[in-house]
Design a protein around this nucleic acid. Sequence first.
DNA 1: AAACATTTGCAACTTAGTTGCAGATTTGTT
DNA 2: AACAAATCTGCAACTAAGTTGCAAATGTTT
Lengths: 141, 141
Amino acid sequence: MAKPNLDMQARTMLKAAALYCTQGRVAILKVLLKAGRPLSQDQIARRSGPGRFDKVTIYRTLESLLKVGLVHKAFMDKRAWHFELAHNCTESQCHPHFTCTSCGDTHCLTEISLPMAKSPHKGFVIHRQQVRLEGLCPACA
Amino acid sequence: MAKPNLDMQARTMLKAAALYCTQGRVAILKVLLKAGRPLSQDQIARRSGPGRFDKVTIYRTLESLLKVGLVHKAFMDKRAWHFELAHNCTESQCHPHFTCTSCGDTHCLTEISLPMAKSPHKGFVIHRQQVRLEGLCPACA
DNA sequence: AAACATTTGCAACTTAGTTGCAGATTTGTT
DNA sequence: AACAAATCTGCAACTAAGTTGCAAATGTTT
Ligand SMILES: [Mn+2]
Ligand SMILES: [Mn+2]
Ligand SMILES: [Zn+2]
Ligand SMILES: [Zn+2]
């Protein structure tokens, strides 16, 4: 029952963003919807069926989703970028990301948000803030 | 007047960390001391004299400095890692980094620090927190 | 200065991400 | 349904970051 729902959801999002509903975009958006956390190009490729899309296509698809604000690049302290749906994000702050130092899993902490930093002194204008947390996840604590 | 001072400072730090005082380590540490902000391998290479050290050496040197806690890896939202001296950092939080969206420069905001995030619910244990800020620097605002 | 421990450079390799271009899809229109 | 215009896709070739093994060079201790 989740499948057709996800498909609809993805197509609706693309339509609303005035993007072509291509096979690649629908599939990749569904992967991100289902995952609910940041994924690398590599993970997205494997989850959308191995060999289904060229990695160039995946990067370009993600870039188009980025441009219209459907996804965010999340900062992972790994060598590869990770992409995720833009959810629970305000203009000035995306939700914090928590990475477990034991199992390595990353979770989106959409429930919490820190106060924005105050500009320190001489004319820094702060527009956006990004927070990364490290520690032990429930499973590893 | 800054030169011999920096040299001394670098050597003292290395001695204290029980590391060999090699030409590479002294030179790279001096570069980081002088820069006062996160630099990529590439930037470090250029600032320590082009062709002076192999990039492998620079990476391995930085890794040794990392291991003893003299430097930190700072996340830059670029493809390359950036390294900087560990300064004004507590156990749980390094200083925030500010990147100007206009000129691209990154500044270390060692004067400010945000309250630690509160663990949201089910057993997340937060050990460290990292904050990245974006906006306009004094020169660009 | 010798002996030992550690670091260095080189060359070769891996992986993430990018670019150009021709052919395939998508969409809106007849 | 068929067409044309706009856009996307895969391929191949490329750039750039980072890693590994190993022999030669350097740093430290005696
Ligand atoms: Mn997230
Ligand atoms: Mn810093
Ligand atoms: Zn865990
Ligand atoms: Zn600026």
